[in-house]
């Protein structure tokens, strides 16, 4: 659905996007990951046909530069920070609805879908950040486009609204929409994405499934294992013997770092040694750590 082929975008001497290629298949959700300045936004602008670039981007076979309008009508775009004309939310919806040639009955439908009903007659400047984001979603979905491009889509939402939206997006994805989004929350990436494209300094440095992302990066999961106090020494010894770097945190908790795939092994070992495990918590590698890793020279 989205084909990015050897796309390079130069600003004077700097290559903001450097020979990037990837594909997004129909119905697939792909997350763009990378630090600020990695070229994600520039790439999204190229996909939207807002910048001229070298290489080729096609959406469903349509070249975004040559058939910019047709290509753009395939996309529903949600910017990171939506800015609207100073009109009523309804007028804005109607305006973009008319641009996309949708039936006006659709407006009511979409307003209910994103939950804007009570705010629809307010001026856009009077809407809260969350409401603006909803409006932005409504506009993106108004013509029911096959592709959604979302730039940090939930950054302005509270926890409850975020959950709602993630659910909505996933539903849309399940209905067959192709989704390309950038995010910095691993839970979102894992919840939504089928694939992650990691960018660094304009280049694609890695592509992987989100659940193996940390592993691919060599990041480890932290396990906190709680055992009765008399067993703590034994447990530490067993695990050390098995090659896990276990540390005793206090009289009944020990901490060890394992790769994501190895999570069950320490438990098995302890059970095999008949040491009772009272409690267990697992800390996945945080996005911050992933980002640090992506930014760093480690890869």
């Amino acid at each position: 659905m989205i084909t990015v082929r050897e796309v390079t975008k130069r600003f004077k001497d700097i290559k903001a996007v450097d020979c990037v290629s990837f594909n997004v298949k129909k119905g697939e959700a792909v997350a763009l990951l990378g630090a600020n300045g990695a070229g994600k936004s520039t790439l999204i602008k190229c996909i939207l046909g807002l910048l001229s670039f070298e290489g080729e981007i096609t959406l469903n076979g349509l070249n975004v530069e040559k058939s910019s309008k047709e290509a753009k009508s395939l996309i529903g775009y949600v910017p990171q920070e939506p800015v609207f004309y100073d009109m009523r939310a309804l007028d804005i919806l109607e305006f973009f609805g008319a641009i996309r040639g949708v039936d006006m009955g659709r407006i009511e439908e979409i307003v209910n879908l994103v939950g804007l009903r009570e705010h629809i007659l307010k001026q856009s400047s009077a809407l809260s950040g969350g409401m603006k984001q909803r409006l932005s979603f409504a506009i993106a979905l108004i013509s029911n486009p096959p592709i959604l491009v979302l730039d940090e889509p939930t950054s302005n939402l509270d926890a409850y609204a975020r959950a709602e939206f993630l659910k909505l997006i996933r539903e849309l994805k399940l209905q067959g929409k192709t989704v390309l989004f950038s995010s910095h929350r691993l839970d979102e990436v894992e919840f939504l994405a089928d694939r992650v494209v990691v960018m660094k300094s304009g280049k694609v440095v890695m592509e992987s499934k989100p659940n193996v992302l940390a592993e691919t990066l060599g990041l480890k999961v932290r396990m906190y294992i709680k055992v009765p106090t008399p067993w703590i020494e034994t447990a530490t010894d067993i695990l050390k013997r098995e090659g896990f770097g276990a540390v005793t945190l206090n009289e009944n908790t020990l901490l060890l770092e394992v790769t994501s795939r190895e999570k069950t092994i320490p438990l098995k070992k302890l059970l095999f040694a008949e040491i009772p495990v009272e409690d267990l918590s697992i800390e996945e590698p945080s996005m911050e750590r992933i980002m640090q890793e992506v930014q760093g020279d480690g890869i």
Partner: peptide, 14 residues
């Protein structure tokens, strides 16, 4: 400057 142009152009308009 305020970004509405960018947003407008992200829609199917030339």
């Amino acid at each position: 400057e305020n970004g509405t142009l960018f947003y407008l152009l992200s829609h199917p308009v030339e």
